[in-house]
């Protein structure tokens, strides 16, 4: 198990006041909150921060942690000294409500037993299992056609001694045709196991779509970006657009600008009613990479009295 330097995680020195700790936490929490931050490792950092704060904000836990000494380095192999917490009493002071099951082995080895196993379960105790939640990423095609997908979820099992244990669990799930982002599929009885003769909870899968360079989905409407040439956009043309449901011949009206949306009614995500499919035009300039191409651009410059910066007064 690796030692964790909670002061370093919070960017504080060991003599920081409780006020400093609170302030540092608030600031870093805003910075690394997974819903706010763009940084790739935000979720990891935020978890680490929550764990550090859990210990340092509580004077009892902090004092116990401090007496491990300051010679330890982050990542150093660590075993808690025997009876290390002798003379300290933990009152579980102000658990933040952070998800303690996410904390590291290091935290668990120091403070874990003060939290775990507090639930006394008699031999005849029965209770329904908790509902479980997971997010599932699917392709847009799956929403159009329906699909079977294998998903892996982390799940807590109780071992023979009643200790929770995290295991991977594979499930083959049918994705019904017509699902929209944000919808949930309820898998009855696939949540956490119940205690005693209690029923297991349900598993809820939240649908999200894999990001795609050319498609995006809003509700049940689908938007597909299709590149067009300047002359197709200017003069109008019939073009073949590649969409999630195959190729379509689409009429581009004359004098279309980049970003113009052409609606194909009822061709979005299927349902009652179905969504619409929007073809979004993206005008692409041909490269001036040959003599004849340069000549064509020069001719355009001569023939158009065109100043796109006119409104800016230049």
């Amino acid at each position: 198990m690796q030692f964790k330097d909670y002061y370093k995680v919070m960017g504080l020195s060991r003599d920081a006041t409780q006020e400093d700790i609170k302030r540092a936490y608030r600031k870093l929490a805003r910075q690394y909150h997974p819903d706010v931050s763009q940084e790739a490792d935000a979720e990891e950092r935020f978890k680490e921060l929550g764990e550090a704060y859990e210990v340092l904000k509580d004077p009892e836990k902090r004092a116990a942690y401090d007496q491990l000494g300051s010679n330890w380095q982050t990542g150093q192999d660590f075993r808690p000294p025997p009876e290390w917490d002798q003379g300290f009493e933990f009152h579980g002071g102000g658990f933040t409500g952070a998800d303690a099951s996410q904390f590291s082995d290091f935290f668990e080895s120091l403070f874990g037993r003060h939290y775990a196993g507090t639930q006394q379960r008699g031999a005849h105790f029965h209770a329904s299992g908790d509902d479980a939640f997971a997010k599932i990423l699917i392709d847009l095609k799956d929403a159009y056609e329906g699909a079977n997908r294998t998903i892996t979820i982390k799940r807590t099992y109780l071992d023979a001694h009643g200790h929770p244990e995290l295991k991977d669990r594979k499930l083959n799930v049918h994705i019904p045709k017509g699902v929209r982002p944000g919808q949930h599929i309820r898998l009855a009885g696939q949540g956490d196991p119940g205690f005693g003769q209690g029923k297991p909870g349900d598993l809820y899968l939240e649908i999200a779509f894999n990001p795609h360079a050319d498609y995006h989905v809003e509700g049940h409407d689908v938007f597909v970006t299709v590149p067009v040439t300047p002359w197709e956009a200017a003069l109008g043309a019939v073009i073949t657009a590649t969409t999630p449901i195959g190729k379509f011949d689409i009429k581009v009206p004359a004098e279309s600008a980049s970003g113009r949306k052409l609606r194909l009614k009822g061709r979005g995500i299927p349902g009652k009613p179905p969504g619409d499919l929007y073809v979004v035009l993206n005008v692409v300039l041909p490269p001036a990479n040959s003599e004849s191409a340069k000549k064509a651009y020069k001719e355009m410059a001569e023939k158009f009295a065109f100043n796109p910066r006119k409104s800016a007064g230049v």
């Binding site: 499930l171 083959n172 799930v173 049918h174 019904p176 949930h184 309820r186 598993l203 349902g271 009652k272």
Partner: peptide, 18 residues
């Protein structure tokens, strides 16, 4: 892996229409 884990589960789609 047990049989239970390999079969395809069809759940109930919530908020299908309204």
């Amino acid at each position: 892996m047990t049989n239970k884990e390999t079969r395809i589960i069809s759940g109930e789609l919530m908020d299908e229409h309204i």
